[in-house]
Nucleic acid binder design. Structure first.
Lengths: 187, 187
DNA sequence: TATGATTAGTCATATTCTTGAGTATGGGAA
DNA sequence: TTCCCATACTCAAGAATATGACTAATCATA
C-alpha cells in the first residue's frame, strides 16, 4: 500500500506518463521512493481502475503515443487519508552495511573499494540534489522559500535526500579510510 | 539473497537463537538490516540445510528449549563471496517522506505530528546507538578503537545507524518547524 | 488468581518487489 | 546503412517481505 501513495504524491507535480514516472523513480530523482518501470505501469493501471487517477491519450507523430495521468479528487482524498494514518519507522537496508558488519572476518579490500565507489555515487547524487534545490527555490533564498514558496513538498523531500547522501558519502569515506589504515598496519 | 547474508553477518558475533536474532532484527539493533521473526526462522532453516550455519539444541528447564546457531566455514566463505560481489546503491523508502512530498496539497497537521513523533523515535534510537558504541569501545577512545579495536564491523555499522538517526531527527524537527510556522501564517 | 508479558517457535497466505524477456518506432552516430 | 539508443509500454514468473493466526510454558503484576 505504499508505492500507490508514492505515485499519487509524484503526480501532484503535474501530468506524467508511465515512462516519465519510471525514469524519475528509477534514478530516485523522485528521491522519496524507488521503483522499476514494470511496477509503475502496473500501479498506474490499478490506480486508474480505482478512479484515483485519470489518464488521457496523447497522440504523437514522431514517437509512440503515450498516456498522461493526473490525480483525481478521489485520489487526493486517498492521499489525505494515507497522510493522516500512522506509519511505522523506516529502516536502513543496505547490502554494503552487511559487508561492513562482517569486515573483520573477511577480506576487507573489496569492501573498501565498494565504500569508495559508493562515496562517489553519493557525492554525485548530493550534487544533483543541490542543483535541483536551487532550481526549485527559483530566485529566493532558502529561508524565504521555506516561509513563502509554492510546492514545498518536493523541496523538503529533496532536502532529506541531500542530507542522506551527504551522510552516506561522509560515512563511506571515513570507514574506507579506517579500513585502509588498518589493512596497511595489519596486512 | 540479502537477508541470508545479513543473518550470516549477525551470527559472526557469536551463537544466537532464532528468537534472539528476531529481537535484534526487529528493533533494528542489528542496525544494518530489519526482518520479522517468521522470516528469520525460515532463513535459519534454509541456511542450515545449505550447511552455511550449524545449530545445536539447548535444553532448558524453565523455558522452552531453543537452538543456537553459528556460522560454519562454508558460511564464512559464502559471506566472503558476497562481500566481493558488487551491490547496487540503497534508496530511502519511507511513508513519511511520501506524506511530506504531498504536504502542500493535503492537511499538514497530522503530518507535522508524525514528524515530531518520528523525531522523538529517532532521538531515542540515536541515544541507544551512542550507548552501544561506548560499550563496544570498552575503555578506549574512538580513534584508538578504530585503529586497534577488535570486532570493528558492528561498531562501524552502528556509527552509520547513529548518523542516520541524527539526520532523521534533525530533518524531522526542522521540517515540522517549517510546516508549523507556515500553518500559523496561512491557517 | 486471573491477566498479560516473555520465551521459543511454526504454518499459511498475501502483497510487494525484482528479474528477464518482449513489441514497436524513430533518430543519431559510425 | 547498419547498429545502437531513446521513447513507450506489456507479460510472465520468481524471490523477498509482510500479515495474521497458532501452540505452549513460565514469570511478574495487579
Amino acid at each position: 500500500m505504499a508505492l500507490k501513495h508514492a505515485v499519487l504524491a509524484a503526480l501532484l507535480d503535474g501530468e506524467y506518463s508511465g515512462y516519465q514516472l519510471a525514469k524519475a523513480f528509477d534514478v530516485g530523482v523522485a528521491n522519496f521512493w524507488h521503483a522499476l518501470p514494470q511496477q509503475l505501469y502496473t500501479e498506474l493501471a490499478k490506480l486508474e481502475t480505482e478512479g484515483l487517477i485519470s489518464g488521457r491519450q496523447v497522440i504523437q507523430e514522431t514517437r509512440p503515443n503515450k498516456r498522461l495521468f493526473q490525480v483525481t479528487d478521489e485520489g487526493l482524498a486517498e492521499l489525505e487519508r494515507f497522510a493522516a494514518a500512522a506509519s511505522k519507522p523506516s529502516f536502513i537496508r543496505d547490502d554494503l552495511l552487511v559487508k561492513v558488519q562482517a569486515v573483520d572476518r573477511i577480506d576487507a579490500a573489496p569492501v573498501i573499494e565498494q565504500l569508495e565507489e559508493r562515496a562517489r555515487v553519493a557525492a554525485a547524487k548530493a550534487e544533483v540534489f543541490t542543483q535541483l534545490l536551487a532550481r526549485l527555490r527559483g530566485g529566493l533564498d532558502e529561508a524565504e522559500f521555506l516561509a513563502r514558496g509554492a510546492r514545498l513538498g518536493p523541496y523538503l523531500t529533496c532536502l532529506r535526500g541531500l542530507g542522506f547522501e551527504r551522510e552516506t558519502r561522509d560515512w563511506c569515506e571515513r570507514i574506507a579510510g579506517v579500513l585502509r589504515e588498518r589493512s596497511r598496519v595489519h596486512p
